[in-house]
Structure formats: structure tokens, C-alpha cells
């Protein structure tokens, strides 16, 4: 049996994972999740902002992590617009702007928001953490024009934004890696008077516990955190007609994915158990056990 593991064709495992995911997703069953404390804090921090406050929203992800981060990004845009908060959107990853432009184009009209007054898209800024330092020190120097080549003076929202993050009440980042939330904390969170929130991928989530709740007031960890947050923000959807772009559809889709993820985790646990059973049954006793 020792050779079972060594000779086992991994493609059977790949097939099992594939079939499980496809069949459960096709079944379309969903389930609710209990909300974690840090997700509730994330939601509460947004709820506590007064209408008209400006939020800097940073897209720090690419297509690889869009499955985890885009739903939370969509939820945040809905939440901010529903509460009449103003958004300045930036990106430190070059592949992020096409996602964010599409989402703003879809969601902003649902709330009757006007570009330049309620939200501004500044686009990608090269430089990783240097870019973040520039944004923190002077948004105007970092972005003399927005993503549509409109000058600063022609964007009324930006008249309320000054240097050293003055005028910005909150920084939210959807962060997939480097540069991301850790760099925002170092370059901006520790230097200026601005509250930080983050949504991250699963692999980066354990890092955030070191900064919560001091440097980071709340965060959404992976698809689980995104789903929990979307559940909390779902009442906002009551204000919107159901249809393309509505928040409840995003929430339902994520809850469906969480069920698939649940069973995938069970499968992996089962594989670990089976692997250990085989290991212990075939292990050659050593030392005292032999005697």
C-alpha cells in the first residue's frame, strides 16, 4: 500500500475536484454565512461616514484574483453610492482599471450618480509603493488629470481633496498582493489621518490580523468575507430595481459559490484523512516500537 500514494495518478483527484465544483455550481444551491467581527467592523465603518464624505477606493488586483475581490469591490461601490458618499478611484495594478471602469459604468447610473461630482476615476499609477507615497503626499501631483484626460479643475469632487490625504475620510483597497494593503498601511496609514479598510485574497488574510483593529478598522478576508459583507449590505438592494448590476444578485452568486467551496474543503479534508490512514497503515515501525 506504500506505493499507492507514490503511484496514484493525481489526475483522478483533479477530476474529482472538477466534477464536484461543476456539479454543485450547476445545482445552484446557496447558503448563508454568519458574519465575522472584522466584517461587521468593515460594514460599520462605512455606515458611520456622513453623506458627502470622500472615500479613496484603490483597485489593487488582476484577473487572477478578480473572482475573490471583484464581488467585494462591487458591493463597496453599491454601499458607497447608496449612502451618498463620494468616490475617488485609483489603481496600483495595471490590469485593474478595465474591471473598475466597467463596474462604475454599470452601477453609478443605478443611483443617479454624476461623473466628476460623485465619483472620479484616476486610473493606474505606476510605481508600486512609490505611487502610494505620491498619492498620500499629494493626489494632485500624482494625478494631474483623470483617466479620461480631464484636468483637475474640471472635476468638482477633487476641489475638496488636498495634500496629505486632507479631505479623504477613508481608504479602501481590494488587495491581491504586492503592492497592496500592507504597503498602504506603511505609506499612508501610518502617516496621515485616514482610516483604512481592506478586502484581500485568502492567502493574504492571515497577515491582516496583525494590524486589526489599530491600523485597519475592518477587513474582508477572501470570498468568505466578501459574502458576509454582501449579506450585510444586501438591504441596500431594496432601493434598487432587480436586474443587471443589482447587489442582491452579486450576494446570491457569492453564496452559491460558498456552498461549492464548502464541499471542496470537505473533499480536501477527506483526501488528507485518507492519505494519513494509508500512511499510518503502511508506516514501518521504528525504534522502541520495533523492539
Amino acid at each position: 500500500m506504500a506505493s499507492v500514494i507514490a503511484n496514484f495518478d493525481r489526475r483522478w483527484i483533479f477530476l474529482a475536484v472538477g466534477l464536484l465544483v461543476v456539479s454543485l455550481y450547476a445545482a445552484g444551491i446557496s447558503s448563508e454565512l454568519p458574519e465575522s467581527e472584522y466584517v461587521r467592523d468593515f460594514h460599520a465603518t462605512l455606515e458611520a461616514l456622513p453623506p458627502g464624505a470622500i472615500v479613496l477606493l484603490s483597485a489593487d488586483f488582476d484577473p487572477a484574483s478578480a473572482a475573490e475581490l471583484l464581488p467585494m469591490y462591487q458591493g463597496v461601490i453599491h454601499h458607497l453610492f447608496a449612502r451618498d458618499l463620494r468616490i475617488v478611484n485609483v489603481a496600483t495594478w495595471p490590469a485593474a482599471p478595465p474591471f473598475t471602469q466597467k463596474e462604475f459604468a454599470r452601477i453609478a447610473p443605478l443611483y443617479g450618480k454624476t461623473y466628476g461630482v460623485d465619483w472620479v476615476e484616476l486610473g493606474f499609477l505606476p510605481g508600486d509603493d512609490v505611487a502610494m507615497g505620491s498619492i498620500g503626499q499629494s493626489l494632485r501631483s500624482a494625478y494631474p488629470r483623470d483617466d479620461r484626460r480631464t484636468s483637475w479643475a474640471d472635476l468638482p469632487l477633487l476641489a475638496d481633496v488636498g495634500d496629505n490625504m486632507r479631505g479623504i475620510s477613508l481608504l479602501i483597497t481590494a488587495s491581491a498582493g504586492y503592492p497592496g494593503i500592507l504597503e498602504w498601511i506603511a505609506q499612508v496609514g501610518g502617516r496621515y489621518d485616514v482610516t483604512l479598510l481592506a478586502g484581500t485574497t485568502a492567502v493574504q488574510t492571515p497577515d491582516l490580523f496583525a494590524f486589526y483593529p489599530l491600523q485597519l478598522k475592518g477587513f474582508l478576508g477572501a470570498a468568505t468575507g466578501a459574502t458576509q459583507y454582501l449579506q450585510l449590505a444586501a438591504p441596500l438592494a431594496a432601493r434598487l430595481p432587480t436586474g443587471e448590476g443589482a447587489l442582491d444578485e452579486v450576494r446570491d452568486e457569492n453564496q452559491r459559490r460558498m456552498l461549492v467551496q464548502s464541499w471542496a474543503h470537505i473533499l480536501i479534508l477527506a483526501l488528507i484523512v485518507v492519505g494519513n490512514v494509508i500512511y499510518f497503515r503502511t508506516r514501518v515501525p521504528t525504534g522502541a516500537a520495533r523492539r
Binding site: I13, A64, A95, L267, L271
Partner: peptide, 20 residues
């Protein structure tokens, strides 16, 4: 890019069986 990233799901299952 999403396809390449999705390989991780399969590979982690395989690594879990083999190495944990």
C-alpha cells in the same frame, strides 16, 4: 490568467493528499 490561477485549486488538493 484566471485559468492559470485556477490550477491552484487542483494542485492544492493533490498536495493535500500527498504531503499533509
Amino acid at each position: 490568467q484566471a485559468t492559470m490561477f485556477s490550477l491552484l485549486a487542483f494542485y492544492i488538493a493533490s498536495a493535500a493528499f500527498r504531503a499533509f
